[in-house]
């Protein structure tokens, strides 16, 4: 039997992330069942409430469950695998608190106050179709979640790039973290020369996690900025004033918003899962990943490609400039 008193701070904070994530998972399961019941004509939710739950469900599932589960795992794996101390356990503790508070507030905004603009948030539905209280709470919750994500990314970056006296320079670590050393080795092999980097400074799974984290930062910046805009509108709404919705162009807003939102799928789902499995494969087999140079180089290529994934949304917008659509 493991005693909680015997756990070190890193183990404790990791378990906190996992436990809170599983609580949010339970919540999304209940929401899912309630919505399912409505679909088969069991009147558990009123029509208006149904769309509000539909709004809370993916937010709680993505940020409360998936993100927190991944964060907890990486807070433990990255220091363990890089053989470094986590940069700040205090920030990690603050991180789960901010994430849990943010997710809870978003849930409240929908489940109790009926915010129902969905995760799509097409402009200007959030500011026209919501009350000041529900919009303000939703925006505050999203902002807290994004701050939590930025804390996580900062903590991981600081851990990966932390150097002791005598360690290699930061530039070498950055080149390795981006997987660029894979390109160098491939280029050398084409020229019939031996690998330049035999022992990469940053292990492959950490390259994947680092690369996923870049998309996650960009995503947090975009969604956080949108939340600030919502907060401004909510503030004036609560004061009884209505700001014009024409201040933002729906097309430019949509392009930016979806660009950020799609990075969640790529950074979190695709690359974090790849990083986890690179790690597991190396631990299980005790060997380096096969074709490691290609895998490292591919992670960098995929980083650039991921910034264009959102472009499929352009297909349904006839008003996009022709060059964007082509």
């Amino acid at each position: 039997m493991i005693s909680l008193k015997e756990l070190n701070p890193l183990q404790k904070v990791t378990l906190r992330f996992v436990v809170i994530a599983l609580l949010f998972y339970g919540l999304t399961v209940i929401e899912g069942m309630m919505m399912r019941a409505v679909q088969v004509n069991i009147p558990l939710l009123e029509a208006e409430h149904f769309f509000a739950v539909l709004n809370a469900h993916p937010i709680v599932g993505i940020f409360g469950y998936s993100f927190m589960l991944v964060m907890g795992a990486f807070y433990f794996l990255v220091p363990t695998f890089t053989k470094k101390e986590l940069y700040s356990v205090f920030l990690a503790e603050l991180n789960w608190l901010v994430m849990a508070a943010g997710t809870g507030i978003v849930w409240l905004s929908s489940f109790i106050f009926h915010y129902s603009a969905l995760y799509t948030n097409y402009w200007p539905l959030p500011v026209i179709g919501s009350t000041g209280v529900s919009l303000g709470l939703y925006a505050l919750g999203i902002l807290l979640i994004m701050i939590g994500i930025l804390i996580f990314c900062f903590n991981l970056f600081a851990t990966v790039f932390h150097r002791e006296p005598g360690d290699k320079p930061l530039s070498t670590l950055i080149i390795s973290a981006f997987g660029l050393d894979g390109f160098v080795n491939i280029f050398n092999r084409f020229r019939g020369r031996p690998d330049k980097v035999v022992e990469p400074d940053v292990p492959l799974p950490i390259v994947a996690i680092f690369r996923g984290t870049i998309d996650t930062v960009l995503d947090a910046l975009v969604l956080g900025s949108v939340a600030i805009v919502f907060l401004v509108y909510a503030f004036f709404k609560l004061k009884g004033a209505t700001l014009p919705t024409t201040w933002l162009d729906p097309l430019i807003y949509k392009n930016l918003y979806w660009w950020g939102l799609d990075l969640i799928a790529d950074g979190l789902v695709l690359i974090y899962v790849a990083g986890t499995w690179y790690l597991l494969a190396m631990i299980i087999t005790g060997r380096q990943i096969f074709m490691q140079n290609f895998a490292r180089a591919a992670l960098f290529v995929e980083l650039v490609v991921s910034w264009f994934v959102w472009s499929h949304h352009l297909l349904s917008d006839q008003t996009q400039p022709v060059m964007m659509r082509i």
Partner: peptide, 13 residues
Amino acid sequence: FQMQVLPGHSNEI
């Protein structure tokens, strides 16, 4: 077919 209809724009197909 379908397209999005954005306010402030003339959406044509």
